[in-house]
Amino acid sequence: MSNELVLAVEDLTVSFDGFKAVDKLNLYVEKNELRVIIGPNGAGKTTVLDLICGRTKATSGSIKFKDIELTKYPEYKIVQVGVGRKFQTPSIYENLSVLENLEISFPRGRGVFGSLVFARTQDVVDRIMEIAEMIFLSDQLEVQAGLLSHGQKQWLEIGMLLIQDPELLMLDEPVAGMSVSEREKTAELLNRISQGRSVIVIEHDMEFVKRIAHKVTVLHQGKLLAEGNMDAVQSNPKVIEVYLGH
């Protein structure tokens, strides 16, 4: 595995009315890495993703994505340089078909006039088919997205990110609400898509984390508590204290 850094978060702090949701956090993610962030409720996991993708503005500190400083970028630019983000509850366009959901996410014609002249050409269709295959939805292309099962909606949102081919993919609880067999398939999917890009996953389900994680980061009260491979983290006394201590 190469050691090329894709994401370097340094001294990141955000405070809401004096409450520090993220406190002097350092986080480094390498290329081809699949990192899982765990931590108790309110540890600041989702806030970290919000900060990286620009949804929340940092109070201080820096977020570097391949030497690009993201803290000053608006959200859409962060996406355009190659950072994709999936929300905790599946965020798809319920009134559009699966195909249209993927088509809208296709990274071309993102400007006003570009979108006016955008046409569904063969390369777009091919790419949609390829992604649909990957997310197990080839047979549902014409289905209205609102009618999909919860798990399928999660996949669709992952697909909407994949079609943009981001270098850094951030997934907030991707298997929440999934059945056991859906979890299996998702683990497989995540292992496949982490080839050639970096993935950050927030997850609560430890069995699932074990299956996918290369490296685990534990957050607690906005601070880094522990980092390392799954076994090391699980036997870390500080982590045990946080999870079982109260």
Binding site: F16, D17, F19, A21, T47, D50, R55, T56
Partner: peptide, 9 residues
Amino acid sequence: GLFTSKVRR
């Protein structure tokens, strides 16, 4: 507005 506070979303 002039007198609101920043909140966590």
